[in-house]
Design a binder for these strands. Structure first.
Length: 551
RNA sequence: GGACCCGUAGCCUAGCAUGGAUAAGGCGGCAGCCUCCUAAGCUGCAGAUCGCGGGUUCAAAUCCCGCCGGGUCCGCCA
């Protein structure tokens, strides 16, 4: 609804309706600062210009603007009662579809997580998963045709090391498979450090895998699948699911890698250097060249990734990759090479690292906190709090603790803008009695609790709205607008913040306004509670957090 | 050496794209609020030279330049 209002205001303003001057404000629903800009050109005072603009506007042309006024050069727009009534009516009518809109029906591919299958996901990887999964949910809400990929790096050196360790030591079958794999991976790395001769075995294994040796392929498949099995289980606990797992070796086997090299040759972008094939990056503004084929004839990660992006171009309209900040250089190089080949480059969301107080994490050295450990500990803490309640069954308590702990985790990661570095702190992760996600879930449960007690028609009336009710409804109307802002800037934290505001405003309403004992206002307020319930539930769902009805 | 990102109250963050109305939340601290729909809640108080220094502008947390602090990258690794 707010999107509609913005469109109306832009139309009403006509020549003055430039979007970049239009903003939300604490003083009015919308305001424009265009008078400041025009005042300069016209050599007049901003408030005079604003006055002139206001008096030229005809309110009868629009349906949702109730009042326009100019204050100190700002032009403020306020909504009318019809806007409030239509908003509440639309929310209740659309229910679980409220907030959905059709910005575009393009096919979007979102690639995220894509951690090397050499061990369990750690707390840095899940920042990737949570950003990626939340973006995917938001693009769907905006009407896009979304598919998510986990790109499996099955051809890397680290996988060869894991495979070597796997065949040498075997694995502990009593452990979760990804944890069992990382054990032999770490052990093998230590062996290699002490005995450089083993490097040759790693190289041989990589070579044979790329050449397609049946035996080696089945070894790699076994190891990678074991790791993925564990990774999928972890992701599932976090409500993250990928549509497809795409193995990079596919692009070697299906000819895309050969094609990409041919294309590069045709465009004259490639040359030989000491037996290897390299892309001349100086023309694209980079210091160093990029090798796409080694002297021994094997390809590199970037070669397969280029092939993957040619494939993406053939199958999707838009592609978004969520990558750690350490991939910035190679990511930008990839974008530029793909562009130079005449294809559409991926959009990339770079997120900064999650570090431990003692420094950065390393899977190879076994220096990391696994996502599983974090999930278990947070669940345990949540369970302790829920167990204090005596009015809930065992199943209800489990369900609540699960929902609250996953919510706390997801919200903690999603609320921070991707470009901000994070330092992980156990105390903060586990102290979630006042976690924002729980606060939002609690607000939802409160709304449900009221609605459980009634069985009657709701009848919203804009005339009866208090100040808080009015503010609350305007906030509810912004749902799809905030989704749009979030996906355009690829920053899901914007929506996370919005939902917190809704919960906070709902709690204001809740404490100030009795609902069940509101007399003639009862059905009016019930409609507001119902609308809030819907917005909170749909919003939590968008963040991948379960909206529980009791807590 | 070169490049990129971050730096906002004791702590965590929003705002920066598109400069504009008293810099907004949360945590923690202090003081209050349950004969009434879930107190995982609400109210109030205290707490900020928006890293530092210049510049542009009627107006800078926001744009430009320089510096400082933290992180990252610059492999025939991924």
């Amino acid at each position: 609804m707010f999107r509609k209002l913005r469109q109306e205001v832009i139309r009403l303003l006509g020549d003055y309706g430039e979007e970049r001057f239009l903003r939300e404000s604490e003083h009015a629903e919308l305001c424009t600062t265009i008078a400041f800009k025009l005042a300069k050109e016209m050599k007049k005072k901003p408030d005079e210009v604003a006055e002139e603009i206001v008096s030229s506007l005809d309110l009868s042309e629009v349906s949702y603007v109730g009042k326009i006024e100019s204050v100190k050069g700002y032009i403020n727009f306020y909504v009318n009662q019809e806007f409030l009534e239509d908003t509440v009516e639309k929310i209740i009518r659309e229910d679980e579809n409220y907030g959905s809109f059709s910005l575009s029906d393009e096919k979007v591919l979102i690639e995220h997580t894509s951690a090397n299958p050499d061990g369990p996901l750690h707390i840095g990887h899940i920042r990737n998963s949570i950003i990626g999964d939340t973006l995917a949910r938001m693009f769907k809400k905006a009407g896009f045709n979304v598919r998510t990929h986990y790109y499996v790096n099955d051809m890397g050196r680290q996988i060869a090391i894991a495979c070597l360790g796997f065949s040498k030591f075997g694995i502990d079958k009593s452990k979760k498979p990804d944890h069992a794999i990382v054990d032999v991976y770490i052990k093998m790395n230590k062996e290699i450090e002490q005995n450089q001769e083993l490097e040759k075995d790693v190289e041989k294994l990589m070579l044979e895998y790329e050449r397609g040796s049946e035996e080696v392929i089945s070894l790699f498949r076994e190891v990678v699948n074991l790791a993925l099995e564990g990774i999928k289980e972890t992701l599932c606990k976090l409500n993250v699911k990928h549509d497809d797992y795409v193995w990079e070796s596919e692009f070697v086997r299906n000819g895309y890698v050969d094609r990409i090299i041919e294309m590069l040759e045709e465009k004259g972008m490639i040359s030989e250097d000491d037996g290897a094939l390299v892309i001349d990056m100086k023309k694209l503004g980079y210091e160093k060249n990029v090798v796409v084929r080694r002297k021994n004839g094997t390809t590199l990660y970037v070669t397969r990734d280029l092939a993957y992006h040619v494939w993406k171009n053939e199958n999707y309209d838009t592609f978004i990759n969520v990558l750690g900040a350490d991939h910035k250089l190679i990511g930008r190089q990839l974008q530029d090479i793909i562009k130079a080949l005449g294809f559409k480059p991926p959009e990339i969301v770079f997120f900064e690292f999650v570090s431990l107080p003692e420094g950065s994490m390393s899977t190879r050295k076994g220096k990391f906190i696994s996502a599983d450990e974090l999930i278990d500990k947070v669940f345990y803490e949540a369970k302790k709090i829920v167990d204090e309640r005596e009015d809930l069954s065992y199943e209800e308590k489990e369900k609540i603790a699960r929902a609250v702990s996953v919510g706390a985790l997801r919200y903690d990661f999603v609320k921070v803008a991707p470009e901000k570095p994070m330092t992980f702190d156990w105390n903060k992760a586990l102290d979630f009695r006042r976690q924002t996600s729980a606060y939002i879930q609690y607000s939802h449960a409160r709304a449900c609790s009221i609605l459980r007690k009634v069985d009657e028609e709701f009848a919203f009336s804009a005339e009866m709205c208090s100040k808080v009710e009015r503010e609350l409804i305007i906030l509810l109307s912004k749902f799809s607008w905030v989704v749009e802002k979030s996906i355009k800037s690829l920053r899901p934290n914007v929506f996370a913040e919005y939902l917190m505001d809704v919960a906070s405003k709902f709690n204001d309403f809740y404490t100030e306004h009795p609902v069940l004992k509101a007399g003639e206002l009862r059905s009016h307020r019930l409609a507001i509670v119902e609308a809030c319930r819907i917005v909170l539930r749909n919003g939590l769902e968008l963040l991948g957090i379960e909206a529980i009805e009791k807590m």
